[in-house]
C-alpha cells in the first residue's frame, strides 16, 4: 500500500533558458499538511502547476495517489482539489450557480450534486440572501470561502492550496487557517503554497523551502529550525537604525547573523539578531547598541523561525525577496 499521496521524483521544468524547477524530489504522506515555502519566483507556482497537470515537467515524474500524472492526467485531476491563489469564480453567477458549474465539471449531477452544494454552502457560512446574490457583491472573505468550497465539491483526496490567504485581512486569515486545519483533521492530504513563514510554521506537518527552483530545506518546522541551530532571535527596537549601529551589532560575539526588518503590525523598524545563546549575549547587545549612541526602545527574545532558516540558507530575507 502506498503511504504517499504525492511523489515527486527528480522533476525539472525549463522555460527556454530559464530553469524554473531544478531537479526537485519530495514526498507528501497521506493526510499530511505540507507547506511549500519560498519567495516569488522560487518555483512554487510552477511546481504546483505541474502537480495539477497544467504544465508538463521537462523531466522527472510526478505521481498523485499512485498515478503518474503524465499517463493518467484525468484520474489525477479527479483526485485533486485545487484552490487557486486568485478568486476564480464567475462573478455574474451566485454561489449556488458557481458550485453547480464546478460540480458538473467533476462529473457530479442530480441529487448528489444538490446535496453536496447544500453541504458546502453551510461550510461557506453564507446566508440564504447572500447565496442568491451574484459573487461580484461578496466581500473578500465570502469569495475566498466559496473559492475553497468549489475545490471541495468532488471530495478530493488531495488538496492544493495556492497562497489561499493572499489579500486577506488578519481576521479572515485566521478564519481560513481554521478551515485548513479542519480539512487536515478530516484526513485530507494538503499541499499549502505560501510565502508567509508563520502560516507555514503554524499549519504544516512538513515544510519544503524553495529557492531558485530548488528545495533548499525539507522537514518539519521544528526540525528545520533545530537543524540550523537557531533556537533564538533577539528583536531590538532602537530609536534609529544606522549603518554604524548595524556594524556594532554584527561585531558582538555570539551573533550568527543580524539584519534590519520591518514589523508590519507595529509599523516599526527592528533589528533581528540570530544567536544560539540569546540570554548570554543580551547584556553585550545592550551595551554595544548604547556604545554607538543609540537608545533601545524595546527588546524581545524569541525562538528561531522559518524566516531565520531561510535567511541562514540564502543570506536574504523572504520579505526582501517579496519587495524586489
Amino acid at each position: 500500500m502506498n503511504l504517499n499521496d504525492i511523489e515527486i521524483d527528480a522533476v525539472t521544468k525549463r522555460f527556454e533558458d530559464t530553469v524554473a524547477v531544478d531537479n526537485v524530489s519530495m514526498k507528501v504522506a497521506k493526510g499530511e499538511l505540507f507547506g511549500l515555502l519560498g519567495p516569488n519566483g522560487a518555483g512554487k507556482s510552477t511546481l504546483t502547476k505541474m502537480l495539477c497537470g497544467m504544465v508538463n515537467p521537462t523531466s522527472g515524474t510526478i505521481k498523485v495517489g499512485g498515478y503518474n500524472i503524465r499517463d493518467n492526467a484525468m484520474k489525477v485531476k479527479e483526485l485533486l482539489g485545487v484552490v487557486p491563489q486568485d478568486i476564480v469564480l464567475y462573478d455574474y453567477m451566485n454561489a449556488r450557480e458557481n458550485l453547480a458549474f464546478f460540480g458538473k465539471l467533476y462529473g457530479l449531477s442530480g441529487g448528489k450534486l444538490r446535496d453536496r452544494i447544500e453541504e458546502l454552502l453551510k461550510f461557506t457560512q453564507l446566508d440564504e440572501k447572500a447565496v442568491k446574490r451574484h459573487i461580484s457583491t461578496y466581500s473578500g472573505g465570502m469569495k475566498r470561502r466559496v473559492n475553497i468550497a468549489a475545490a471541495l465539491l468532488h471530495e478530493p483526496q488531495v488538496m492544493l492550496l495556492d497562497e489561499p490567504n493572499a489579500g486577506l485581512d488578519p481576521g479572515n486569515r485566521l478564519a481560513l487557517w481554521e478551515i485548513i486545519q479542519t480539512l487536515h483533521k478530516e484526513g485530507k492530504t494538503i499541499v499549502l503554497t505560501t510565502h508567509m513563514m508563520d502560516e507555514a510554521e503554524e499549519l504544516s506537518d512538513q515544510v519544503a523551502i524553495m529557492d531558485k527552483g530548488k528545495i533548499i530545506a525539507l522537514g518539519s518546522p521544528r526540525q528545520l529550525i533545530k537543524k540550523v541551530k537557531m533556537e533564538n532571535t533577539i528583536t531590538v527596537v532602537p530609536n534609529k537604525i544606522t549603518p554604524k549601529l548595524m556594524e556594532a551589532v554584527k561585531k558582538i560575539s555570539g551573533v550568527k547573523r543580524s539584519y534590519r526588518a520591518y514589523d508590519e503590525e507595529e509599523k516599526i523598524e527592528t533589528i533581528k539578531i540570530i544567536t544560539e545563546r540569546a540570554e548570554d549575549i543580551l547584556p553585550e547587545v545592550v551595551s554595544g547598541i548604547s556604545s554607538v549612541g543609540s537608545k533601545i526602545l524595546s527588546v524581545q527574545l524569541s525562538r528561531g523561525t522559518l524566516e531565520d532558516v531561510f535567511i541562514l540558507l540564502t543570506g536574504r530575507s523572504l520579505r526582501e525577496e517579496e519587495q524586489l
Binding site: 484525468m74 484520474k75 485531476k77 479527479e78 487557486p84 465539471l105 467533476y106 462529473g107
Partner: peptide, 14 residues
C-alpha cells in the same frame, strides 16, 4: 484573464 479557464483545465475536462 479571469483565471476561470485555468480552473476548467485543472478539472477532469478535456
Amino acid at each position: 484573464t479571469k483565471g476561470t479557464f485555468q480552473r476548467m483545465v485543472i478539472a477532469p475536462v478535456s
